[in-house]
């Protein structure tokens, strides 16, 4: 009999508390913005912190509150940004997918001032006499950006400088924030030609510290048919709105600082083509001059 009492009493108690909690959840209901949850479902959900808010929920709250742009979550991509914009009643932001790019291809080509044997961390290495590289702009290659990347898109390339795998990159830019040399920038994913050097020194100064540095010679600027590459502060910079990816600049760069670097063969070929073109142009000019002279002659006799 006692057992039955126990079951009944606890059952009733449990049901009673359950009822009270159910009523309380209605009475004390706090109205949460339903958009917050809808926005959250369109975020990447990696809690990477790339947006600068604590986790995806924090980012969703900030977007709903209007403190963050609808495309604050870079890893979610343009589709989700458009969906969030629809939830928020805003226009979808235009612009294509961005990826990170490391503006240095020095690595083993860069001259070392000393052998750094401390903690394998770029930040720590820069603290020792401003880093082991002669170049004060170059990638140190200790991989602080690699460990900052949550998506496995960063690695130290074969020549010792960091490289980004554009297929895995979500442009969260956590690597850019981790890099003590501020070498990592976001570039449009469809563009394939990039200047892989950030050295602002000119001519000899840049040449002496690294075998693949941009010396600011301006050959690429002269060669570009689209006015898309300019030497700014001693280093070539591509205007991605204008660049069509013809790679002419890579073929004239004497330092192989523009990626993808052209091979010597390609360069020779391009030189030959240019020479032929120049000869042709000179010949055409000569012919035109002769024709003009001939045309002037009969006019002279008539007089």
């Amino acid at each position: 009999m006692n057992t039955v009492y126990a079951i009944v009493v606890l059952g009733v108690l449990g049901a009673l508390f359950g009822l009270v909690l159910a009523v309380a959840s209605k009475v004390f209901e706090v109205k949460k913005d339903p958009r917050e949850e809808a926005v959250l479902s369109h975020l990447a959900g990696a809690n990477c912190g790339g947006c600068g808010y604590p986790g995806c929920a924090g980012c969703a709250a900030a977007i709903v509150a209007g403190n963050a742009p609808v495309n604050a979550c870079a890893p979610a991509g343009a589709e989700n940004a458009a969906a969030i914009a629809a939830i928020m009643g805003l226009e979808a932001p235009s612009g294509e997918r961005q990826v990170a790019f490391v503006r240095c291809n020095g690595g083993t080509n860069a001259k070392k001032r000393f052998d750094y044997v401390g903690v394998k961390d770029c930040m720590a290495a820069t603290k020792v006499a401003a880093g082991p590289l002669d170049c004060s702009f170059g990638c140190l290659g200790f991989g602080t950006c690699v460990s900052a990347c949550q998506f496995g898109a960063m690695s130290i390339g074969p020549n010792g400088a960091a490289v980004v795998d554009p297929d895995k990159c979500t442009a969260c830019m956590a690597c850019a924030n981790a890099c003590p040399r501020h070498l990592i920038v976001s570039v449009p994913a469809s563009k394939k030609v990039h200047v892989a050097c950030a050295n602002q020194d000119k001519g000899k100064a840049a040449m002496s510290v690294c075998a693949s540095s941009c010396i600011g010679c301006g050959l690429c600027q002269k060669e570009c048919k689209k006015d898309a590459i300019h030497v700014v502060n001693g280093v070539a910079v591509i205007d991605y709105d204008k660049c069509v990816g013809c790679k002419l600049c890579t073929k004239v760069c004497p330092r192989d600082a523009i990626l993808p670097a052209a091979t010597a063969e390609e360069k020779e070929k391009y030189k030959a083509i240019k020479k032929a073109q120049a000869e042709k142009a000179a010949a055409a000019k000569k012919a035109a001059e002769e024709a003009a002279a001939k045309a002037a002659e009969p006019a002279g006799t008539a007089q």
Partner: peptide
């Protein structure tokens, strides 16, 4: 013991809801 665990668990839940609102 069983009854008290029940009481405490629901009480904490209830307090949480109450505080969130008021």
């Amino acid at each position: 013991t069983v009854a008290f665990i029940l009481v405490i668990a629901s009480l904490v839940q209830f307090i949480e809801m109450f505080l969130q609102k008021s």
